[in-house]
């Protein structure tokens, strides 16, 4: 397990507090939506950088007004088949203009990294022994896209300039 950003394993400065009895002091924390809602004042007073972890049935609009407090939003893929977080990531980037880190965790598989990246994820907790290799393997898979997302890649139809049969 390792966090990938731009194809490289990077250290994770955050402590994920889900499952912890009490919040550790003095370190950047990732908290659940419930923790945020019940301990908001304490968390803000800690002065630490904060991350928020959302389950796949917790859409970002629930905390749209609070996004400025977080430097990372962690979106869960309980199973690779659960595609809700793709929409959540696009909402964060494109509708709520969240500029911080969007992290994919859970059942994050090599073959899904490309779509995740296009939807706005920039860090990936990738399963498997060699996450950097996983990223390298898929890096050249798709150079053409029919859809525009918030990542700025032009659509095929924007590149065509109306050339026809």
């Amino acid at each position: 397990m390792g966090l990938i950003r731009a194809g490289r394993l990077v250290p994770d400065p955050f402590t994920d507090t889900s499952g912890l009895e009490s919040l550790p002091a003095g370190v950047p924390l990732i908290v659940s939506l419930e923790q945020w809602q019940t301990q908001r004042t304490t968390l803000l007073a800690s002065g630490q950088r904060l991350g928020l972890r959302l389950k796949s049935d917790q859409p970002p609009r629930l905390i749209a007004a609070d996004l400025g407090h977080f430097s990372v939003i962690v979106l869960e893929f309980p199973k690779y088949r659960d595609g809700r977080a793709y929409t959540h990531a696009r909402m964060l980037r494109e509708r709520f203009k969240f500029a911080g880190e969007i992290r994919a965790v859970g059942d994050v598989l090599q073959e899904q990294l490309h779509f995740m990246h296009r939807c706005g994820f920039d860090t990936f907790d990738v399963a498997g022994p060699d996450p950097e290799k996983a990223w390298r393997t898929i890096a050249g898979d798709h150079t053409v896209a029919y859809q525009a997302t918030g990542d700025g890649q032009p659509r095929a139809l924007d590149l065509r300039k109306g050339t026809g049969p």
Partner: peptide
């Protein structure tokens, strides 16, 4: 074309 390899709607 819009639906093929749609990054958001493939799962």
């Amino acid at each position: 074309q819009w639906s093929i390899l749609h990054p958001e709607f493939s799962y």
